Computed example of a mutant assay.
Amino acid sequence: MSIKNLLAIGAAVIGTAALPSIAAQAPLKGTFALPGVTEKATAELVVRETGPLTRELLIAFTDKATGRPITQFDEELTQELHVLATDTDFSSFVHEHAGKRGADGRFSVAMRFPKPGTYHVYADAMSKGLGQQVVRFEVPVGVATGPTALSQVPVGSAKGSDGPYTVNLDASALRVGAESMMALTILKAGKPATDLGLYLGVPAHAVFVGTDDLGYVHAHAVAADAPKGGHAPHGAHGSGSHGDPKAAIPAQLMLHATPPRAGRYALWIQFKAGGEVRTVPFVVTVPAAS
C-alpha cells in the first residue's frame, strides 16, 4: 500500500474519531419563549463541556414552515444572536454573544456559568425575514435537572447595586399588554453617574423573565428627555438604531417594555459604567388588567 493511501486512511480515521465530540451528545430541543409573537423558527442546541463551569453552545435555527436551516440573520443591537441564561432560582444571569457564524447558519457561543445548576438558556435572534425569534433550552451545568420552588425567587425591591453603582427603579407604571415606561436612575456614590457609556449601542438593556411561565422580554432604555416615539424596544425590533457613541449618557433613563402577562418577573438591567458592564437584578410585579 502506498504512503499516499496510508495517509488518506489515517486522515479518515482521525476525522471520524473527532466527530463524536459533537455528535455523541443528542441535540436539545428548544421551547419557543416569546409570548405574543408567532413561532416561525425552531432551534436545537448541542452543549459541549469545556470545563467544570464552561460550555460551548452550538445553536442552529430552522425555518418552521420550510424545515430548512436558517443561514441569514439581521443584526440587532450590534449582534446577530444574544444568548442569555439564568438559573432556576433566578439568582444568576449571563449574557453572551456568538463568535463568527458558520456558513450552515450554526452559531458557536462560549459561556461561563457562575455556579452549578440548571439554567434557562435563551437564544434571541433576528432570523432574516422572520423577525425576532426566541427559543429557550434547559441546560444542566454540573447537576441533574430538577424543579426549583418559586418561593426562592427574591422579594422585589426598588433599588439594586453592582459595585459602586446603584440603580433606582420605578416600575409602578408597568401594565400588562401595553407599552409601559419605567424610570430608572443610575447613581455612583449616591450621585448621578457621569461615567456611563453605551453597551451594545444603547444606554442600558433590560431582560425580563416571567417566574411562572418563563416568558421572555428584552428591551432597552433611552434618555429620560428623549422625544416620544424615539425609542425602539428590542422586542419590537423596530429601526435597530443605536445611540451616538460620543454623546454623554445621562443618569436618568426611561425603559420601554410591554409585559405580555400579569405576574412576577425577574429583571436584569445592564449598562456600561466605569468601562465595565454592570448587571443589577430586580423582581417586578405586573398587575392584572383592571
Rank of each mutant, 00 (worst) to 15 (best):
N5H: 13
A8T: 12
A8Q: 09
I9G: 06
I9T: 10
A12V: 12
A12M: 05
A12P: 10
V13W: 03
A24K: 13
Q25M: 08
L28E: 10
L28P: 05
G30E: 04
T31D: 08
F32D: 00
A33S: 11
T38K: 15
K40R: 15
E44G: 14
V47D: 03
V47N: 07
G51K: 05
L53V: 09
R55A: 01
I59Q: 04
I59K: 00
A60L: 03
D63A: 07
K64E: 15
K64N: 13
R68D: 06
R68N: 11
P69L: 06
P69G: 07
I70W: 02
T71Y: 10
T71A: 04
Q72W: 08
D74G: 09
L81C: 06
V83N: 08
T86R: 01
F93S: 01
F93R: 06
F93Q: 02
H97T: 09
A98E: 08
S108V: 15
R112N: 14
P116C: 05
Y119M: 13
H120Q: 15
H120C: 13
V121L: 11
M126G: 11
Q132N: 14
E138P: 07
P140Y: 07
V141F: 02
V141K: 04
G142A: 03
G142L: 06
G142S: 09
T145H: 11
S151V: 13
Q152E: 15
Q152R: 13
S161P: 12
D162S: 14
T166M: 07
L169M: 03
A171H: 01
A171F: 00
A171S: 15
L174M: 07
A178D: 15
S180L: 04
A189Q: 12
G190H: 08
T194W: 02
D195R: 05
L198H: 03
L198M: 09
Y199K: 05
Y199Q: 14
L200V: 03
G201I: 10
H205M: 04
A206M: 00
D212T: 13
L214Q: 10
Y216W: 07
V217S: 00
H218D: 01
A219H: 11
H220Y: 07
A221H: 07
H231K: 14
H234E: 15
A236I: 14
G238F: 15
G240T: 08
H242G: 12
G243Q: 02
K246D: 14
A247W: 00
A247G: 12
A247N: 02
Q252K: 10
H256Y: 08
A257W: 00
R264D: 09
A266N: 00
L267I: 01
L267V: 01
Q270F: 01
F271P: 09
G274K: 00
E276D: 11
V280I: 08
V283Q: 00
P287E: 01
P287Q: 01
A288V: 05
